[in-house]
Each structure stands twice: as C-alpha cells, then as structure tokens.
Design a binder for these strands. Structure first.
Length: 187
DNA sequence: CCCTAGATTTACT
DNA sequence: GTAAATCTAGGGC
C-alpha cells in the first residue's frame, strides 16, 4: 500500500470526498501506530458553498483551506471538540476541504480506548470529534502535510466497498439541499 | 430506545 | 454577544 500522492487531492473536492471512502488513515504516536478505514466524509468548498468555513474569505482559522492540497485542516468547535479535514480542490476553486466524519478502527484499538475513555468499539470513532480524540489529533496538527510518512497520513485502502450513499451534510443550516455527505455501508 | 440540556472556546453576522 | 461542520449523560417512555 502507498501513501496517497498530492495529485489525489488536486481534483474536485466532491470527487476527493468520494474517493477517500475506504482509504486508510494512519496515526503514529512514538512507536505506536493507530489506523482506521474511512467510511464517511463531507465536502466543503469555496465561493459556491455557504456552509463552508471558507465561504466568505480567508481568515486565521481557515487559511489552510486556501493553501496547498493534501494538508490537514483541524478546527476547534463547540468549546470542546476538534474536527479533522483534508485540503482538496481543483484549479476552479480557491479553497476546499473534506471533513472526515467516521472511521472503522483497525490497529491500535487499545490506544483509542484509552484516548476516548470508553471500550465500546462501535462508538470509538464514529463521529468527527470522536475520531480526532481517538487518534489524538489536536490543533498541533493544523496544516501538516498528509502526503508524507510522518505522524499522520492517509494510505491507499485497497479495500473494495459497496455503493456510496449521498446525503445532506450534518449539523449545518445552509445549503442543506446539497448531497455532499458520503458514506459506505459496512457489514 | 428517544429526547433534552450542558459543556465551553473561537470567530465574526 | 452569539452561533458554531459536536458529543455525552441523564431522565422519561
């Protein structure tokens, strides 16, 4: 398996969101490794997407969405939660990112249980703020490159999966008519 | 099982 | 000041 190259992310944000399903996210902490398969994503774009943080203009928080693709966009919200995105867009847009909403834990499950303080495997990383906590992602990881083998990166999943289900994005009030939430069914 | 409320920082309508 | 790309605990059914 190989790490996804930067060209993977330099396509349309929606396409990348769908393509990330079934891929593997890897987090290394010291000598330990945590990994999981991505099963749910959401696309956020610039200029035509009122629900996106980058809809209006570049700010201190969202600036990495305008930066090089393949980087991590981590933001803090609701006073206690981090969410993890990957910067992705083609040349038609100035900014864009894909929110990773859920993964299936693969390796390092004990570490995730420790990070989360629970042992219910179904709830370990089945939400955007849960998976950041399970993987130990914080704003320290803001802007890091996900295309190199370091503390955090994304690999080719090689895993075949079934149909992609498109739904309205979750937790937003604008542009709910866009089916930019994507997930795959899991056995 | 479903629904409600509370936690608590950041960014800007 | 207030709303936010959320989660959990707790009480009711």
């Amino acid at each position: 398996m190989t790490i996804l190259p930067r060209t993977f992310y330099s396509r349309d944000t929606i396409t990348v969101a769908k393509s990330l399903l079934g891929k593997k996210i890897v987090r290394k902490i010291g000598k330990k490794e945590i990994s999981g398969i991505i099963i749910e994503t959401e696309a956020y774009r610039h200029s035509d997407d009122p629900a996106s943080h980058a809809f209006r203009k570049i700010t201190e928080r969202n600036k990495v969405m305008f930066d090089e693709v393949g980087k991590a966009y981590v933001y803090f919200t609701y006073g206690m939660h981090y969410c993890f995105n990957v910067v992705a867009r083609n040349s038609k847009f100035q900014a864009g990112a894909v929110l990773i909403r859920a993964i299936i834990p693969e390796k390092g499950i004990e570490i995730m249980e420790e990070n989360r303080g629970i042992t219910d495997r179904k709830k370990l990383a089945n939400g955007p703020a849960k998976l950041t906590q399970a993987l130990g992602i914080t704003k320290e990881h803001y802007g890091i490159d996900l295309t190199t083998d370091s503390k955090l990166f994304i690999m080719d999943g090689v895993k075949k999966h079934g149909e992609i289900i498109a739904s309205p994005r979750i937790g937003i009030k604008n542009a709910t008519d866009r089916l930019w939430n994507f997930k795959i069914s899991v056995k």
